[in-house]
Design a protein around this nucleic acid. Structure first.
Lengths: 178, 178
DNA sequence: ATATCTGCAAAAAGTTTGCTCTACG
DNA sequence: CGTAGAGCAAACTTTTTGCAGATAT
């Protein structure tokens, strides 16, 4: 098992147009999408996101880079990118959809129910088991998701006291309900 | 692995008041909730549900038994029961929350992406693996969920042609988006 | 008796959409 | 240039809430 070490694209030298493109913007081009300024900004925000922002948060971050972006465009864009398979929508509870780039690879989430932190991890054994289960039920596994809700073990907790929160796409609500 | 064989409570002889109570209604009493007529009806609907109805569907079923129930009450009730741990909220995509009784035991869902059918299954090996993963990350596993999205294998498909849908709490949208 | 619950309707919250103008290719 | 995209605001959908009257314990 390996915890993901997500690398974010550093901001490109804004030379011309295509060179400064973020990884996701490049994916968009690859998918034949028309690259508008707004989309390029949103793509960049998504590429640089290390968490699981919701639309509101994406809108906020995009607006910082270019104030001429509307929420509607963010909604339209994430929907488009989701359809293209570039983005994945998540539901961690709380009513709003949260997004992350598919290119980050398949991984799972462990949510710390006390702090709201979301820890990502990969696990081949798990993939294999799930595929096996699906097969036993007569299905080919097309996609899947697993979320663990846990609490730090006493022994683990005393190791560090980095009590703060790490991931938080704008709102972290452990239980998913206020 | 064992597919769940959920038993639903048959309707009780409406003798007095407490005798006809559904399993969930009894749980409500145990939790000290005031049992109004509406709650009793909703509890019964939930107890008898073999699928994962959303609020709209719960409202429809409850209304059949007693037309003097409002959607607001259904919302308030499921929220209350969820807080008490009697109900669990699910998100299978599609924007609306779907509910099922916690008493049905811990199980997982395999969603047929073509038909929208939801198949429930249990798997001890999976529980063990998830707990192990959590432990490796320094957590005690408090709860978890796993959803598989699959497509019937060619070989399996030709065995039966029960093409229709089985589970469907009012709306089944394989991809979660219309 | 009285704190809790319900219905109703209005309000939130999140997301989608029609229309017109703008801009990518 | 022509068509897809963006902005704006209005529409929609799902869920929550304030309030007055009803009800379980």
């Amino acid at each position: 098992m390996v915890m993901s070490t997500k690398k974010m694209g550093r901001d490109g030298a804004a030379s011309g147009e295509a060179v400064g493109d973020s990884p996701i913007a490049r994916l968009c081009v690859k998918h034949g999408l028309k690259m508008t300024g707004q989309r390029r900004v949103i793509a960049r925000v998504l590429s640089e996101a290390e968490d699981h922002p919701d639309v509101e948060e994406l809108y906020r971050r995009a607006s910082e880079l270019d104030s001429r972006i509307s929420v509607a465009t963010v909604y339209r864009t994430v929907r488009l990118l989701e359809e293209k398979g570039i983005l994945e929508r998540r539901d961690f509870g709380g009513g709003r959809a949260r997004y992350e780039a598919s290119e980050n690879g398949h991984h799972y989430h462990l949510i710390d129910i006390d702090s709201g932190n979301v820890i990502e991890f990969e696990n081949d054994e798990l993939v294999g088991l799930l595929a096996k289960i699906a097969a036993e039920l007569g299905f080919d596994l097309m996609s899947h998701r697993a979320e663990l809700f846990g609490r730090r073990t006493a022994s683990d907790r005393k190791k560090d006291t980095t009590s703060g929160k790490a991931d938080d796409g704008s709102q972290s609500n452990p239980s998913g309900r206020a």
